[in-house]
Design a binder for these strands. Structure first.
Length: 174
DNA sequence: CCCTGATTCGC
DNA sequence: GCGAATCAGG
């Protein structure tokens, strides 16, 4: 059984806004089918994805999640980092790249803890994997949020269409 | 056949 | 509200 927690919904919103397909989102969230994701998308009235997201999807090569090399995955998560990212046991490998929509807020390098290792003040933004294998960002949370500043803004920025457009404008101006 | 989202409707 | 089944299509 899996339920639509706030965090999973935030994650869904973000991934959907970034142009990931319903099935990709389903495997990353775990315990869901693509039908469930599509159903939720409709209930949230998120179904009108805007231009850029469509392009991302069209230009994304179709690669089986389990076949993506771990090295490639680590590189896509933390492309700003030179040192190798930590080893990850999960077979799920996201090619999610967070948008540079946060102005001067630096993209955190995920610490990739599992749920059981999460501390109270660790950012709970799911980075990859499913269920027990899910790894989280784990950087210090912003006050009043379950996310670090970067992911707090990421979740917020992927809310409504107007918010996304505003975020896109900010990015362009920066 | 692989995949995509959209819709319906019993639960 | 949820999501399997189904539809329509690439």
């Amino acid at each position: 059984m899996s339920e639509w927690t706030e965090e999973r919904i935030d994650s869904l919103r973000f991934m959907w806004s970034e142009g990931l397909s319903a099935s990709e989102i389903a495997t990353r969230l775990g315990g869901l089918t693509r039908n469930a994701v599509i159903g939720k998308v409709h209930r949230l009235k998120l179904h009108n994805r805007v231009g850029v997201a469509k392009e991302i999807q069209a230009n994304t090569p179709q690669v089986k999640v389990a076949e993506v090399p771990k090295v490639a995955m680590a590189a896509s998560i933390a492309k700003v980092v030179v040192r190798p990212a930590p080893r990850i046991a999960s077979t799920a490998a996201p090619r999610l790249e967070l948008p540079e929509m946060m102005g001067s807020v630096l993209k955190p390098v995920p610490l990739l803890k599992t749920l059981v290792d999460l501390n109270k003040d660790d950012c709970r933004w799911p980075v990859n994997g499913e269920r027990a294998e899910t790894r989280f960002c784990c950087h210090a949370v912003s006050q009043g949020s379950s996310y670090c500043e970067y992911h707090r803004l990421a979740a917020k920025g992927s809310g409504t269409v107007s918010e996304r457009l505003a975020a896109r404008e900010l990015r362009r101006a920066a």
